[in-house]
Amino acid sequence: MDIGVISVRYARALLKSATDTNIEDTVYANMQLLAKSYIEVPALRHTIDNPMLAKEKKLMLLETAVGGDSASPLTKAFIALVLKEDRENMIQFMANSYITLYRKQKNVIRGKLTTAVAVAPETEQKMRHMVESRTKGIVEFETEVDPEIIGGFVLEYDTYRMDASVKSKLNSILNTLKK
């Protein structure tokens, strides 16, 4: 069977269980942490995929990757089930599938605000509220400082991109002058 199909089935079952017990937000945070762990520690994948490593050690590693003692009991039970069924090589995909399904269910949109200098929390909050009012959803907002844009900002969410940076304005003027 296809990795994508299996991952989505496990993720859907986890989301249903989490929703039924009203802890889907906690499990979402656990799955985000797991996905982040796989990205930040590439050796985690090789270690978990190693058939010579005992299941108990894999369980310990994965529980640590989802937050250790602060992980929900459902998340821990899910990891144990995945290991029992010998599907540990797909757990990263399951975590990403859960994140996607959760965002779809909760109408969560990811947004990013890039500025030349750090902005005040009030400004960031205003931008978040603007995006939320336009999308009628919840926005997970990420801010980034990029001095290369010189000034202004770049706002991205969903498929929308607003580039109000000084750099893009200067490039536009330069391109007009070249014609």
Rank of each mutant, 00 (worst) to 15 (best):
S168M: 09
K136D: 03
K136H: 07
T176E: 10
N22I: 09
L81D: 12
N89M: 15
A116F: 05
G137V: 03
R87K: 13
T135I: 04
A116V: 03
T19Y: 05
I173C: 05
L83F: 08
M130Y: 08
V139S: 04
N96K: 15
V8R: 13
K126Q: 10
M60K: 07
E122N: 02
G151P: 02
E63S: 13
P73N: 07
Y157C: 08
V5K: 14
Y157F: 05
T75P: 04
S97L: 08
I109Y: 14
E144N: 15
V154D: 03
G67C: 05
A77M: 14
A80V: 08
N22D: 10
L113C: 11
K136P: 00
F78W: 11
E144T: 14
N107L: 13
R128C: 00
N175G: 03
S72V: 00
T47R: 11
A118G: 05
I48R: 03
V139T: 10
L177A: 12
T143L: 00
K16W: 01
T75W: 04
A120K: 05
I48W: 05
H129P: 01
V82I: 14
L170Y: 12
P51I: 01
N50W: 00
M90T: 15
G151R: 11
E132N: 09
R110W: 09
P121K: 03
E40M: 12
N171G: 09
V66E: 01
